[in-house]
């Protein structure tokens, strides 16, 4: 009886093991991918929270890590609003000082990256308002609304190239284009931020968009020819 029981247990174990291995063998890739993805997201979230906590404690290493994690992306944001890399870095510096100074206000409900991005955008706007060389170009005159063309080009240019084209827009156009097309602000919100009417924002955006499309078309046509020639 005892032997039976022991053997039964062994059989049981073998079966279980086989089934388990089979299951693992079948579902392992999918499960691994899913788990990895989830754990990465969770890990990022936890990392951000831990990083924020450490920064609030005044740990310089944590501040450096936070900076390293977001500085490249944020410089991309600052780069779109300014005319030179130097100015972009100035905005980045000022923005990060504000981030660290007001990190206590971040309530860890939303993404840290989005919170930092908002700070960068607003710092960039303040920077533009402060500097005369930008201010002179920030003319927001009321103009008639340009109809938006439907012949949108397929944006096939690289991010950096597109950013450079955006930076070549007149300052007022550049700001409004960035705020509306990239950041997603409505014209009413842009009007409030810049102290202009939403109509002005709309018209400026339309002009900026048309101008940019023309430039992209020119740029992409030369690239297309090169690419198609290559293909």
């Amino acid at each position: 009886m005892l032997r039976y029981l022991l053997n039964r247990d062994k059989r049981f174990k073998k079966k279980d093991l086989k089934g388990g291995f089979a299951a693992l063998f079948l579902f392992k890739p999918a499960a691994t991918i899913l788990l990895n993805k989830l754990s990465r997201q969770y890990q990022d979230l936890m990392d951000d929270q831990k990083l924020v906590r450490d920064c609030l404690k005044g740990k310089l290493q944590a501040q450096r890590e936070l900076y390293e994690r977001y500085s490249e992306k944020m410089l991309g944001v600052c780069y779109r609003y300014t005319r030179s890399m130097r100015d972009a870095e100035d905005v980045l510096q000022e923005g990060f000082v504000k981030v660290f100074h007001h990190l206590g206000q971040y309530k860890q409900e939303g993404e840290l990256g989005a919170w930092i991005r908002r700070i960068m955008v607003n710092t960039a706007l303040n920077f533009l308002k402060r500097h005369r060389k930008y201010q002179e170009e920030m003319f927001f005159t009321e103009e008639y609304l340009h109809p938006v063309t439907n012949d949108d080009p397929i944006v096939r240019i690289q991010a950096k190239e597109l950013a450079d084209l955006i930076r070549q827009l007149p300052q007022g156009y550049q700001v409004i284009f960035n705020l509306h097309a990239v950041e997603g602000y409505t014209h009413v919100e842009i009007g409030e931020m810049l102290g202009i009417s939403d109509g002005t924002s709309r018209s400026q955006y339309a002009r900026a968009r048309n101008l940019l499309i023309t430039w992209i078309e020119k740029h992409s046509s030369t690239n297309k020819q090169e690419r198609y020639a290559g293909k």
Binding site: Y106, E109, I119, T123, N126, E183
Partner: peptide, 21 residues
């Protein structure tokens, strides 16, 4: 911090928006 209440509305930001800060 002119972290305007007008939240930056990139897709990512929309998910992160509600903050009272």
């Amino acid at each position: 911090i002119v972290i305007d209440s007008t939240v930056a509305k990139t897709d990512v930001n929309k998910t992160a928006a509600p903050a009272t800060e």
